[in-house]
Amino acid sequence: MDDAYWLFVVMVVFTVSSPGPGVLMTLDNAVAAGWRAAMQGVLGLALGAAVMAGLSSAGIGLLIRSSPPLFQLLKYAGVAYLFHLSFKTWRRDPKTPAPTGRREAAPAAGAARKRLLEGALLQTSNPKSLFFFLSVLPQVAHGAAGAAVATYCIVLVLIHGLYAGLAARAGVWLSRPGSARLLSRLSALMFFAFGVTMLTLTM
């Protein structure tokens, strides 16, 4: 593997571990429902990243980048979804988290699919993800785009899995009604802030 690949790995680690809507979703899911439930959303984020990488490789990213109306449409869809997450998180019942002994039970199939879909939607509704792959992949792929995308997804799952584990361990305190309500309010405000920030995003 050449130096460009390892530079890509370093960029991915910093990109994936930096605070953002994806990290916030992982932490929020871990506190609300435990590590295994949070990993459903993480797998959705990884799936969304693979889709965005595929779109970039197919040239659709260039089309969006060269078309202001398409870019604006994608941007406002992402903003609307972040605002939806903010509203849903703000209204969440602080008594929703299960008792400590039941938090790591396998999530129901419907809830698992919902978290998977939410993660994928969050990732694919962010134009910054598309532009990351559009600007970085050509520099490191050299005919091995699949390996680069797989690396990104693996790093994402590992780092978010660590975040989810740390958040789940803190869940005993964070799942108390008062603490859970405060966390929900802070998470909702952060989702809203991310949405407002995305409004300022330009090509």
Rank of each mutant, 00 (worst) to 15 (best):
D2E: 13
A4G: 02
L7F: 15
V9M: 07
F14T: 00
V16T: 00
G22S: 13
L27C: 10
G34C: 12
R36V: 11
M39G: 06
Q40G: 13
L43N: 12
A49N: 12
A50I: 00
V51G: 02
A53I: 05
A58E: 10
A58V: 06
G59S: 07
R65S: 13
R65H: 08
S66T: 04
F71M: 09
F71D: 04
L73C: 12
K75W: 10
K75C: 08
Y76M: 15
A77N: 01
A77T: 03
G78D: 00
L85S: 03
S86G: 15
K88D: 14
T89K: 10
R91N: 11
T96A: 13
P97S: 10
A98P: 06
P99M: 05
E104C: 11
A109I: 13
G110R: 14
G110T: 09
L122R: 01
P127I: 01
P127G: 11
L130N: 01
L130S: 04
L137T: 00
P138M: 06
Q139V: 04
V140F: 07
V140Q: 02
A145T: 08
Y152M: 11
V155Y: 08
V155N: 08
H160Y: 09
G161Q: 02
L162W: 15
A170K: 05
G171W: 04
L174C: 11
R176D: 12
P177V: 10
R181F: 04
R181Y: 05
R181I: 05
L182D: 01
S184V: 03
R185L: 14
M190T: 14
T197E: 09
T197Q: 12
L201I: 03
